[in-house]
Every structure is written in C-alpha cells, then in structure tokens.
Design a binder for these strands. Structure first.
Lengths: 186, 186
DNA sequence: CTGTAGTGGAACACAGGTGTTCCATCGCGG
DNA sequence: CCGCGATGGAACACCTGTGTTCCACTACAG
C-alpha cells in the first residue's frame, strides 16, 4: 500500500495544483503564496516538500503525467500525421494553466520525453510521409509551432473572457491546420 | 543640447542593451548580473538608474522605440493586409532577444501602443477586407499568432545553432502566411 | 600640475523569501 | 479520557538582492 493516509494525498494534491496555477502566472512566486492558494499553512507545505526544488520536481512529475494522459487520449497512431497532431492539439488545449508552465519552462527535460510510445517527432514525420504535413517544415519546427499556438490560444482565452472555449479551440485547430498543411492543399 | 557627455550615453546604452538580453532569458535576473553583462560596476548602474523600476522603464522605452522603428520599416500601408503583416514579421524577426521580452512581459502597456499610425489591428482588418486574411480569424487572434510564432522562431534559432537565420525566417513566413490565409486560397 | 567627470569597490542596513524548530490546536479512534 | 495524526502559527537564523554611502582610482581638459 502506497497510500499513507488518504487525507495526506488530498493535501499534497491541493498544494501541487496550486503550485501549477501560480507558477504558470509567475515562475518566481513565493512558497507563501502557493501555500495560501492551496489554503494550507507554509509549515504544512514544508512538511510535504522540504525544499522548493522538491515541490518543483513534484510539479514536473504531475505535469508530465497530465501530458502523457492527454497524448494517450489523442490516439496518435490513428489517421494521418496532421489528424493526429490536431487531435493532440485538442487534448493539450484542455490542460489550461499547465500550458504556460510547459511553454515558459523549457529547461525541464521532463516535459517532452514522456509522451509515450510515439514521440511527437515521429507523428510529424508520418505526416511528411502521408502528405498531410508540408515536408518542407522540420519536425522540431512543427512541434515549436504547436506549443506556441497552444500558448497563444491560452493567452487569448485569458484576455477575452467573453470568448467561448469552443470558439478559441476552433480558431486554434484552423490556424494550426493551415500552417502545417502545405500551401497547395485543397 | 540634451547630450550630457557622449560617454554617459554610451554607458547608459550598454546597460540597457545588457538588461534587454538578460531579462529576455530571465525576467527576475539581478541587477548585479546586468551590471556584469554590461561590464560596469553595480554602483555605476545605480548611478544611471536609481531603482530597478527605473531601469525596467528605460528598457520598456527602448523596446518600444525598436518596435516602432521595425513597424516603420515594414511600410504597413503598402500592399494587401497579409503582405503588410508578413513584412512586419520579417522586421520583427530581427529584433532578437527583445522578442522574448515583449512576449513574456505582456503586462507593460508600452509594447502594443506605439506601433505608429496604423495599429496592427487595422492592418489585419484591411486583410479581412481585401481577402488576403481569413475573415473568420479575429484581429486579436492574428496578432497573438504573430507574436507566438515570432517567439517560436526565436526559440528555434536558439536551439538549432546550425540553422541559418534566413532559413528560419523562411519557415516563419511560410507557416504564418498559411495560418492567416484562408483554407481555400491558391 | 590641478580640478573634474566618470567609474569601481567596499561596506552597510534593509527587505523578502527560505528552511527550521517549537508549541498549540483540532478531530478522531481506541 | 487519552493519544495520535495532521495542521497552523510564531519565532528564529540565514541568504540573496537592493539601495545607499563613502572613498579611491583613472583619464583628460585647462
């Protein structure tokens, strides 16, 4: 049994969640702020994560798991490369604040690695082969495009509270699809 | 004569330049680091900018001027909306580290305002009217797309030192153009 | 040579975040 | 009721960055 107490897990999760949300807005935010957002005392936070680095590591792990889950839901093996990429786009879009964190913290190696069996680059290369992705665009470029547009979409949603989540997702899929598809496509 | 000494301006400019480059990489970097990068003592830095906020303000002004200069070079009045947008893309691309700063510091109002006579949104709307930009895409969305792809291009250039500046610019223009142009274009 | 502008370094007090310790409180099962 | 697990708060020392003061050094014009 890894479950120590049940309530401990709940508190721990609340801290990690608060950390993700606050760090997304300000990567240099204080532990006191995170503790307050999680509605726990700073002492309790330190009881779960002795040092700041420990909390950041936990955030990294949690983020990696969410990314992996999204990638699994996207069924990257199905359909053309472009279709798989856009499905992944949809799933990632739901990750919310985590997008900022992943995008602005490229230092952590944890993000890109755990995408599961088919690394993102392989999906893009499949798109190159089946003609759904412009072969002129390097895989790394397409991946960078994916993240930057996801971040742009998240920021747009933040700045336009009246815009519906569904509408923004449509915009994202449309521009991402157009960017990746070659100029000669239908 | 506003020119106090000539050498003072040179030192001041070195500090602001160093600040732009360092703040782009780490918005929370210390004044000591900036002084070191500018090859001046921390005392000298404080002699030019009494408080951190004063330096940040100077960086903001300098950034605004560079953005305005780039916008002027792009001749936003000429050609279709999409053509003007892509010309601006080219000019902005040369701003280098400043891109990270503008992109990650949306709090400063200084960036977007001083674009000169034709605000960016007007260019996009011209594109809507002349058919060169998909009318389904809101102007704010297109602007967000522009910045995010500029940032992605800059990051790509950083991570791929072997990639030529010219090649990355080509990728940027291509994906940006495709994203903005409607799906039914030639 | 002398005064001055520009600079650098050492030292200081201050503020804020961090990590730790100790003690008090609350809820709950034995 | 008692003990225990989980928590919160106060206090502390520590570190880093900040803003300031003071003094020494260099280059250069008069």
């Amino acid at each position: 049994m890894r479950v120590t107490s049940g309530i401990k897990n709940r508190t721990r999760q609340a801290i990690v969640d608060a950390a993700i949300n606050l760090l997304a807005g300000n990567p240099a935010c204080s532990l006191g702020d995170i503790a307050a957002a999680a509605e726990v005392g700073r002492t309790t936070l330190h009881r779960y994560f002795a040092e700041r680095a420990d909390l950041l590591a936990a955030v990294s792990v949690e983020g990696g798991e969410r990314l992996a889950r999204a990638a699994r839901l996207a069924e990257l093996d199905r359909g053309t490369g472009a279709e798989a990429l856009l499905r992944l786009c949809r799933e990632y879009f739901d990750l919310g604040a985590l997008l900022s964190l992943v995008f602005t913290e490229p230092g952590d190696e944890c993000w890109t690695a755990p995408d599961g069996a088919p690394p993102l680059a392989a999906v893009v290369k499949r798109g190159h082969a089946d003609g759904s992705i412009d072969p002129v665009l390097p895989a790394d470029w397409v991946i960078g495009l994916l993240w930057s547009q996801l971040y742009a979409a998240w920021e747009y949603l933040r700045d336009h509270p009246d815009a519906s989540r569904h509408h923004v997702l449509d915009l994202l899929i449309r521009t991402m699809g157009n960017a990746v598809r070659g100029p000669g496509a239908i």
